[in-house]
Computed example of a mutant assay.
Amino acid sequence: MSTHSYAASKHAVVGLAKNLAAELGQHNIRVNCVSPYVVSTNIGQGLADFTPKVEAILNEVGNLKGTVLKASDVASATLFLASDEATYVSGLNLVVDGRYSVVNSSIVVAVRSSLLHA
């Protein structure tokens, strides 16, 4: 479950990508977007003791047990969309979440519960 503003902005990006793909396709311009799962990056360096806890939770509740999404995984997906191997791919929202969005909708509850009891 996410906030209304997050859900609205995410749907806006996906909708814009699809609309631009339809509009710009006539000029042979491809438009896609990438929707990654939670990624631990250097942005949270000030939260050094917090980050391992979050990664442990993500590993526990994620669909691909023992695997945590890395920034390089998202970069690889993005590189694929920009490559010649995806020349006929346009209007796609590539979800890079290990199928988490399909099988598990309780991340917010799990994270909140784990952090409150930590």
Score class of each variant (00 low, 15 high):
residue 9 S to F: 01
residue 47 L to S: 13
residue 111 V to E: 00
residue 105 S to G: 13
residue 102 V to Y: 11
residue 81 L to K: 03
residue 77 A to P: 02
residue 113 S to C: 04
residue 63 N to S: 12
residue 22 A to I: 06
residue 71 A to G: 13
residue 40 S to M: 09
residue 82 A to V: 06
residue 105 S to L: 01
residue 82 A to G: 07
residue 70 K to G: 09
residue 76 S to D: 14
residue 75 A to Y: 13
residue 60 E to V: 02
residue 37 Y to Q: 06
residue 3 T to W: 10
residue 51 T to C: 00
residue 19 N to D: 07
residue 13 V to G: 03
residue 53 K to D: 03
residue 7 A to F: 06
residue 56 A to M: 06
residue 39 V to T: 14
residue 74 V to P: 02
residue 55 E to Y: 04
residue 38 V to T: 06
residue 70 K to F: 06
residue 97 D to Y: 04
residue 14 V to D: 09
residue 23 E to N: 09
residue 10 K to I: 01
residue 43 I to E: 11
residue 46 G to M: 13
residue 10 K to Y: 01
residue 1 M to G: 08
residue 59 N to R: 14
residue 85 E to R: 12
residue 36 P to C: 08
residue 72 S to R: 13
residue 88 Y to S: 08
residue 70 K to T: 10
residue 22 A to Y: 13
residue 14 V to I: 13
residue 18 K to C: 04
residue 10 K to F: 01
residue 69 L to P: 03
residue 37 Y to K: 05
residue 32 N to A: 09
residue 84 D to L: 05
residue 65 K to V: 11
residue 7 A to N: 13
residue 62 G to T: 03
residue 104 N to K: 07
residue 36 P to I: 06
residue 35 S to D: 10
residue 21 A to V: 08
residue 22 A to S: 12
residue 78 T to M: 10
residue 116 L to F: 01
residue 106 S to F: 03
residue 68 V to G: 02
residue 55 E to S: 13
residue 35 S to K: 05
residue 67 T to I: 15
residue 33 C to H: 04
residue 54 V to K: 05
